[in-house]
Design a protein around this nucleic acid. Structure first.
Length: 693
DNA sequence: GTCCTAGTAAACAACC
DNA sequence: CGGTTGTTTACTAGGA
């Protein structure tokens, strides 16, 4: 497709792609533009108004082309021939025209992205650019329409030659019009080149050296390049066939005149030395032909209800032919028509501006509605997070301890997050202070892995405080670990790995983590000879209870615990570190502690040896009962051996509900003479223990 | 206004 | 001795 354009280009000796050594085609077009007949000087400081003017000129040229086309249509109608199927195999006298020349320079998305990446455009410039883009796309559509009509007419002519004999005079006229049309196209193309040059001079467009020249890039919007090219081929093929049969007109090649730097003038129509190359590519498309049949021959935007609709005209035309004559005579290419066309252009621009504003408004509304749901104050955190903060700050302030963005554990499936356009910059999202009522605060609804995973990339990169409580995050970190247990340092690492926010102010949030670990009943600290780690009781987490204040909670692990386990051997099975068993573990242990905590604690602190023996016993039992073969250590827990799963237990002895404090543990309770500790809330005012100490 | 809860800071102790 | 870990307390602020 496009290589055909290239061959045609080369055939004419004008190097389009490499003519300007850097592929900067616009420079070559500068010479072309300066050589224009109208003598318009290039706008050194081409602004939006100049660009609009260029657009106006382009549309004007297009209008003239359409006018010529209509004249041609009129002649076809005079001949009174319908167009049956076209014969595909025609003599190959061609009018090859570069597709690149025929394609308006609609800015491709790549170029648009390049422009945006430059970040030098003001909103006004972008607005202008958008408008120009829309105008050019409109031109494309008009061209497409024109080509279809042209094809139809040529087919009609061809049929006429085959069945009704030669009509040299008419054919000559058609050919002349074709030439004039192509000249108009050339002019239009030059204007487009000028337009692009203006864009470049403004800095709106940058053609990089390695990048192909802009006009040679395929169309990305508007019209499919292949379709456009095919259309033109059909047109030229049919037309050249006609000329071969009936006249001595030379084939026309507009390729060099438009896009090449070696064509200084629009009148430089040269002979095409490779006319035959197009013949084989002329493919008949029945679809397009059928479409051409459906087209109304007399439809014209400037003609309706017998009146010329040229702005300010309203001349009555009896029929379409008279309208065309009127159009040619009264609205030819002159200053008046140009001025009127400019006015119309302004009208269109106003409408487009309004449309752009409305689009922008719509976008803002949509953005607002989407971002608002992610505001920190909004309790529920949406899963599809689209708002973000500028990463510049987080990047600049990220502490050096920021970890690589690797999935935490194999058990934490991480779904990729849609990135890129979904991220909308809003610095307001950069929250600093404490945020209350985070997601999953209420009723301690556990955050799922998907909650974090879906926004994982976002939180990893954006220094946005996650709308989760520390407790929720700690729980998530623990549950994501292979063994459902983490050391404190591993929890730290999880936070810094998963959230860019926690790469700053480490002292603050680390202290908060420690406080939460100690404060929440759901977090159970377990010790072994290698250190301590933390597990989570999910059921207790859902309860969301805190360890009561004002009440001593800690006890010496080697004291008073052996007896507890001795009375409750089933606890041993629950001492594994996985989530599946940490819950019953906590239930049982905490149930036991509910019965024994205060007296045990108190007595332990006072030197009661009972729990010390108990702890030793349970530790031994654990070592024996748990051949914890799962040695899959977390990547973040290098310091622990597989045997770490065998834990002596060092658990906060927060009591559970009275109904949970049943079973053999009651023996401990009674044995420790703690009638007051059956109730959770009894510890509120409990200076007794402190007093006892 | 009160209560509850989360977050923060700080003090302290034990441990490494 | 300094850092880490863990506990506890006090305080603030937001929400019900």
């Amino acid at each position: 497709m496009m290589q055909e354009s290239g061959t045609e280009t080369k055939s004419n000796g004008s190097a389009i792609q490499n003519g300007s050594s850097g592929g900067n085609h616009l420079l070559s077009c500068a010479g072309l533009r300066e050589g224009r007949s109208n003598g318009e000087t290039p706008a050194a400081d081409a602004g939006a108004a100049d660009l609009a003017h260029v657009q106006q000129q382009q549309q004007q040229a297009l209008q003239v082309a359409r006018q010529l086309l209509l004249q041609q249509q009129q002649q076809q109608q005079v001949s009174g021939l319908k167009s049956p199927k076209r014969n595909d195999k025609q003599p190959a006298l061609q009018v090859p025209v570069s597709v690149a020349m025929m394609t308006p320079q609609v800015i491709t998305p790549q170029q648009m992205q390049q422009i945006l990446q430059q970040q030098v455009l003001s909103p006004q410039q972008l607005q202008v650019l958008l408008q120009q883009q829309q105008a050019l796309m409109l031109q494309q559509q008009q061209l497409q329409e024109f080509y279809k009509k042209q094809q139809e007419q040529l087919q009609l002519q061809l049929l006429q030659q085959q069945h009704a004999g030669k009509q040299p005079k008419e054919q000559q006229q058609v050919a002349t019009q074709q030439l004039a049309f192509q000249q108009q196209l050339l002019q239009m193309q030059q204007l487009q080149q000028q337009h692009l040059l203006s864009l470049q001079r403004q800095g709106l467009l940058t053609i990089q050296p390695g990048q192909p020249a802009l006009p040679l890039q395929p169309l990305a919007q508007g019209m499919i390049p292949t379709e456009l090219q095919q259309l033109w081929k059909e047109v030229t093929s049919a037309h050249s066939a006609e000329e071969t049969a009936g006249s001595n007109h030379s084939s026309l090649d507009l390729t060099t005149t438009c896009v090449s730097s070696s064509a200084p003038s629009k009148t430089s129509l040269i002979m095409n030395p490779h006319a035959s190359t197009n013949g084989q590519l002329s493919v008949h498309t029945p679809k397009r032909e059928s479409l051409s049949h459906e087209e109304h021959p007399h439809s014209h935007p400037l003609y309706g209800h017998g009146v010329c609709k040229w702005p300010g005209c309203e001349a009555v035309c009896e029929d379409f032919q008279s309208f065309l004559k009127h159009l040619n005579s009264e609205h030819a290419l002159d200053d008046r028509s140009t001025a009127q066309c400019r006015v119309q252009m302004q009208v269109v621009q106003q409408l487009e501006l309004q449309l752009a504003k409305d689009k922008e408004r719509l976008q803002a509304m949509m953005t607002h509605l989407h971002v608002k749901s992610t505001e920190p104050k909004a309790a529920p955190q949406p899963l599809n997070l689209v708002s973000s903060v500028t990463l510049s700050k987080s990047a600049s302030e990220a502490s050096p301890q920021s970890l690589p963005h690797t999935p935490t554990t194999p058990t934490a499936p991480i779904t990729p997050v849609t990135q890129g356009p979904s991220v909308i910059t809003t610095t307001s999202m950069h929250t600093v202070g404490p945020i209350r009522r985070r997601y999953s605060d209420k009723y301690n609804v556990p955050i799922s892995s998907a909650d974090i995973a879906q926004n994982q990339e976002f939180y990893k990169n954006a220094e946005v405080r996650p709308p989760f409580t520390y407790a929720s995050l700690i729980r998530q970190a623990i549950l994501e670990s292979p063994e459902k247990q983490l050391t404190l340092n591993e929890i730290y690492n999880w936070f810094t790995r998963m959230f860019a926010y926690f790469r700053r102010n480490a002292a603050t949030w680390k202290g908060a983590i420690r406080t939460n670990l100690s404060l929440h009943k759901c977090f159970i600290r377990v010790e072994d000879e290698f250190g301590s780690f933390w597990t989570v009781d999910d059921e207790e987490f859902k309860r969301g209870r805190h360890i009561q204040r004002g009440r001593p909670r800690k006890y010496c692990p080697d004291e008073n615990f052996d007896e507890l386990v001795a009375h409750n051997p089933s606890l041993i099975k629950n001492m594994q570190s996985s989530h599946a068993y940490c819950t019953p573990l906590n239930a049982a242990l905490q149930a036991s502690m509910a019965e024994n905590s205060i007296p045990l604690y108190t007595t332990a602190s006072m030197g009661n040896p009972t729990l010390g023996n108990l702890a030793s016993a349970i530790r031994e039992e654990l070592n024996g009962a748990m051949e914890h073969t799962n040695s899959n250590e977390s990547d973040s827990s290098p310091g622990r051996s597989p045997m770490q799963a065998v834990h002596p237990v060092h658990v906060k002895e927060e009591p559970l509900d009275p109904e949970e404090a049943e079973g053999p543990l009651s023996l401990v309770t009674t044995a420790n003479h703690s009638p007051d500790f059956d109730h959770d809330r009894d510890y509120e005012d409990e200076p007794v223990n402190e007093d006892m100490e």
